[in-house]
């Protein structure tokens, strides 16, 4: 792979805290290697800011391996930037070229208030899980793992849905700020498995109710979420969510 260096302009959203109005600020960075990750470019920029006595840009990140779901930058109008199926931390600078201007904003949704700069509060997702995204099985109650065979195909689909990293990109891109891809992924994961069966009805109703309370919008199936999801969570999960919700709402034994 050929490497190259570039000089860039980065327009970043700066906001001191949740009450501040916030606005864009423009920065120049030099000699950025195409081998760097996007966040390493931010590291360089932040070192530069600290050196100049300015406050570095706050952003969430931890694993830098595309799995924890912490990183969450809206890059050039797209959550997680230009590469498909890629988190911000796995985006690499060879996606850009010398002289580019890159615009970086936080997730914007009523349910994800900004804490500072690019950092938002996504605890609403935790509360949606707490509303029903689990199997009620206390430690020690389990039977032998192989006592209940599960068709490979079903197990694989459950796994594909369970791959969601809770990043919130689906909400950030949605014009309605709907959390339905996130919820659909969890509801599908558990609905596809026999272990999820006993709580199948209450789970979906409680999770949707919680999402309404948190201020997430309704889903109009535009499909934007699927296109930006770094884990390629399929929109079929929203269809399953709707079906599960209908079944649960109309069943007599709620």
């Amino acid at each position: 792979m050929e490497h190259y260096n570039m000089n860039l302009t980065v327009e970043v959203w700066r906001q001191k805290n949740k009450d501040d109005k916030g606005g864009f600020k423009s920065y120049k960075v030099k000699d950025i290697s195409s081998e760097m990750s996007f966040l390493e470019m931010f590291d360089v920029l932040n070192e530069q800011l600290v050196h100049n006595g300015e406050e570095p840009i706050a952003f969430d990140h931890d694993c830098r391996e595309g799995i924890c779901g912490a990183c969450s930058m809206y890059i050039n109008g797209k959550p997680h930037g230009p590469w498909a199926a890629t988190t911000t931390c796995q985006l690499h600078m060879r996606a850009f070229k010398d002289g580019d201007t890159i615009v970086v904003e936080p997730w914007r949704a009523k349910a994800f208030p900004v804490i500072k700069d690019l950092v938002t509060d996504r605890s609403a997702f935790d509360r949606i899980i707490a509303a029903g995204g689990y199997v009620s099985v206390n430690t020690g109650n389990a039977v032998d793992g192989n006592s209940l065979p599960i068709e490979k195909e079903k197990a694989d689909s459950a796994f594909a849905a369970a791959a969601c990293i809770g990043c919130g990109a689906c909400v950030a891109i949605c014009k309605n700020s709907s959390a339905n891809l996130f919820i659909g992924a969890k509801v599908s994961h558990l609905a596809l498995l026999p272990q999820g069966e006993p709580e199948r009805r209450t789970r979906v109703i409680n999770m949707i109710e919680q999402a309404d309370k948190e201020g997430f919008g309704a889903c109009t199936v535009t499909g934007a979420c699927e296109a930006v999801c770094p884990k390629e969570i399929s929109i079929a999960n929203i269809a399953r969510l709707n079906k599960e919700y209908m079944n649960a709402s109309f069943s007599s034994d709620k």
């Binding site: 389990a142 793992g145 197990a155 459950a158 369970a162 994961h189 498995l193 272990q195 999820g196």
Partner: peptide, 9 residues
């Protein structure tokens, strides 16, 4: 066993 019961795929 515990993880399978929780729905770990």
């Amino acid at each position: 066993d515990q993880c399978v019961a929780q729905g770990v795929p």
